[in-house]
Design a protein around this nucleic acid. Structure first.
Lengths: 210, 210
DNA sequence: CCTTATTAGTAACCTATGTTACATTATCTT
DNA sequence: AAGATAATGTAACATAGGTTACTAATAAGG
């Protein structure tokens, strides 16, 4: 486990800090589709990703949702950071996109290390920076791009994260994450198929050239 | 000047830190409409707002733009923080919305104080947290709300920030900040006028009940 | 005071996206 | 195998919002 940690965070963090993380943290191996954070929960610890990916979703009472961004290996979820340090309830949902290995750190350590380890401090700042940029990028996509463009990017990203050239999702699920409707997504997917970019099947989509 | 600083940041930051800020920082009194940050610039210092307000805008090569959020007194601009610590170019434009007093801190102090002043550390974290939330809120508005709702919120917020019940902007300017077109904004404003919520004039809009 | 530029009003039209409704096909249960 | 359920295809229609074009009103400059 420590070797995994070192191979991912070795260049980012101090060797002594890695030892400490390994001692106080709890390793968790999670299956794809596991809910890590639910809206309304208090968060008492932060996850460092060793492998896999987590998708972060904004969810509403009425069942509406919107995909915000993915967190990948070597990163942490700044939304949790923020919630930790401020003792606030989470406003987002986090779900493992694929099988994921992470290590969970209790939040008092988070603060303590900021005083003691300069590289931890940089790491935390960089995480915030990344998150702000991801949010900005999501905002731009929603504000400026048309749905067909967003759909293509969604398919590409999902394929990349899952390391496959196919997407195992129903049209309804895609529609939810893009905050659209099933019929519209089916229509656009069919158009992409007619252009030869993808091939549609029941419950999965083959990606050819996007 | 120090008394202004104390009255705004006195409860947030250590007294000794305020002294230090007062010494190393540069006070700047800016007129409404002053550009503080332009896209592409490197940022070597961060601003602490003492009074006034700054609007933060995403701007593109083709002249398109989108209003992201306002920074008000007692806050700093986390987008600058992020740029400072990472030595990156700014991706946003910041303009004073009204006459504004702020104090500018060189960025090496920013880092130094994080190690030395716990409350500075909390302040910086809280700023990030606020910015993430503002971004999330902007994202939601663009993704879920219709333009007429966004327009109403825009008018309210602008009125509040300027401390007036009128907005001194042309329809074109409003359209740009909401990333829409003049004709559409005029149409929606006229509808709001017919409902008795506002009164339209050349170059300004009277707000009645919104 | 007259000309010009800026700002706003309005109509006609277009398109992306959402909605409703129903048919079809694939998968699961029993 | 039959029926139930879930996923997809498709057509018809509604609407928010963007575009173009033109007019009207107001302000600014000489």
């Amino acid at each position: 486990m420590l070797t995994d940690l070192q191979s991912v965070y070795g260049t980012l963090l101090e060797a002594s800090l890695l030892q400490e993380i390994n001692q106080v943290g709890t390793y968790r191996q999670l299956r794809a589709g596991t809910e890590i954070i639910r809206p309304g929960e208090y968060i008492k610890s932060i996850p460092l990703l060793i492998s896999g990916a987590i998708k972060v979703i904004r969810e509403y009472d009425d069942g509406e949702e919107l995909l915000l961004y993915y967190v990948e290996e070597g990163n942490t979820c700044s939304m949790s950071l923020a919630c930790c340090t401020e003792q606030k309830r989470s406003t987002i949902k986090a779900v493992t996109e694929i099988d994921t290995l992470l290590i969970v750190i209790p939040n008092q350590k988070l603060e303590e290390w900021i005083g003691r380890y300069p590289r931890w401090r940089s790491f935390i700042f960089a995480s915030y920076q990344n998150r702000l940029e991801e949010m900005l990028s999501s905002l731009e996509k929603v504000a400026f791009e048309r749905l067909d463009e967003r759909l293509v990017e969604y398919l590409k990203e999902k394929g990349r994260i899952n390391g496959e050239n196919s997407i195992h999702q129903t049209h309804k699920e895609i529609a939810d994450e893009l905050h659209s409707s099933r019929v519209v997504i089916s229509r656009l997917l069919k158009k992409l198929e007619n252009l030869g970019h993808i091939k549609l099947h029941r419950n999965y989509i083959e990606l050819n050239d996007l």
